[in-house]
Design a protein around this nucleic acid. Sequence first.
DNA 1: CCCCATATTTCCATTGCATGGAATTTGGGA
DNA 2: TCCCAAATTCCATGCAATGGAAATATGGGG
Lengths: 272, 272
Amino acid sequence: MHAPADPAPRRQHHEDPLLNRSLVRGIEILRAFRPGADLLGNGEIAERTGLSRATVSRLAQTLVETGLLEHDRSRRAYRLAAPVLSLGHAMRSGSPVLNAVAPLMRALAEKMRINVGLAAPDRDEMVYLESVRYNRKVALRNVVAGQRVPMELTSLGRAYLAVAPQEERRALLARFKAARRSEWGRIRDEIRAAISSVEQHGYCVASWQPEVVAMAAPLVMAQRPIYVFNVSVTTAASIQDTEAELKGPLLALRDRARAVLLAAEPPPSRAG
Amino acid sequence: MHAPADPAPRRQHHEDPLLNRSLVRGIEILRAFRPGADLLGNGEIAERTGLSRATVSRLAQTLVETGLLEHDRSRRAYRLAAPVLSLGHAMRSGSPVLNAVAPLMRALAEKMRINVGLAAPDRDEMVYLESVRYNRKVALRNVVAGQRVPMELTSLGRAYLAVAPQEERRALLARFKAARRSEWGRIRDEIRAAISSVEQHGYCVASWQPEVVAMAAPLVMAQRPIYVFNVSVTTAASIQDTEAELKGPLLALRDRARAVLLAAEPPPSRAG
DNA sequence: CCCCATATTTCCATTGCATGGAATTTGGGA
DNA sequence: TCCCAAATTCCATGCAATGGAAATATGGGG
């Protein structure tokens, strides 16, 4: 402590004085639950979150009281409870972006007979706000919302990386490099290519299975979080032909979405 | 403090020593967001939760850091963010009840051409885990999850009240009485009738619009939260005829669900 | 363009209460 | 019934959460 030039004075012990530790920890516990990890005991939660078991026990009980977790005593474990779903419902119904573009997405899916998705970044993954899955059988044209896909492997995620804030992109790439050790060379090159493609054409392509082509285009608007559209299709056609066919519709979707959002923006009245 | 007969010693100041106050408050902030109240400023959150503005400001910022809220600075307000959706997704994919009965529900909806739902209680409302909306136009057979409906007015909620724990039912009825002052007489009678019906026949009926008939049957299993099934239909037929037609399928759905769940129960291995 | 009204964020001293390690209890299997 | 693993509760410590007030930011109106 000889010089006051320390860029981050960080009072006391915590990095950010406006971060409530208990709340962060409680949320981390909720976040530990995901498909495939749907039933977690105290021990597992402690491992995944790095919290002490005593803390996990108390916070988990608190989450049960609030209704977000339920305790399965016969398995000595917790699982997410129904009110969590209603938060998701509230999120969807309140998302201006989703509500503005959902009709456009459905129309495009029907017209081109492709899957059309909208996603947002969350840490090192992308979360679908909506994914209209096109299917021959009409009854199976279901919609997936809330699903996570890896950022570094998907067109969706790479399109985001292309427009992510400098610092965040750097941090994310570092994480991926560490996590993907052996395959990093290939993945890094693909990400670089995707970034170039987004910078030049506004979209990028990924085809991780022979007959599946996925393309994604980010939607960047001032004062708004970044969203990414994607389209994907299973086809026997070449990647090039598919790309040529879908780039127009994808970019048009993005542009129409932007227009709709700009039009919906002005009235600064608050809903209550 | 003359007699130790005090039923609730409540140490120190807080009612329940294992309730983390900050976490409860943060969750209450999340819960303040619902359809129609999707964009909330600090002031509104403070009003709805009863918290001080300073506390709301700090906790809301924390929730932004965790990714569950996003801050719309142009409107000076918060809204739920995409990761909330992924929690909902994780909840659905991890719900043994939902996964066990979803196929049965879909089949019933198709066969009888009715809406079929599954819900769980949350405070004074019911939350749909799934609602398979039958519709002439196949393309519109969408599914609603996470939607809330009032407990005291719906067959779904009344069926729950019929099997709710003594003490909880009492508390809920008191809330409804206070909230529904003027209409309480009618509502109370309808709830009583519904409770009798559930006790006698296992289901209850509500028809709050002329041509809409809704029926609900609770699913009570040891060591498991209470769930409620419902079916509803818009029809020109009489309530009696509709009830006669649907009671069998509804109760059969409940019984099949119970059987499926009992069969899926035994293996006490924990998913990770 | 400036000023004002409103709402939000930050500051600060106080002490409530969250915390981790240890002890205890619980529950299931042998 | 006993044993083992896991969860819960206890406890002293002191960190960090809190509310009121001041400072600040924002946007509309004159």
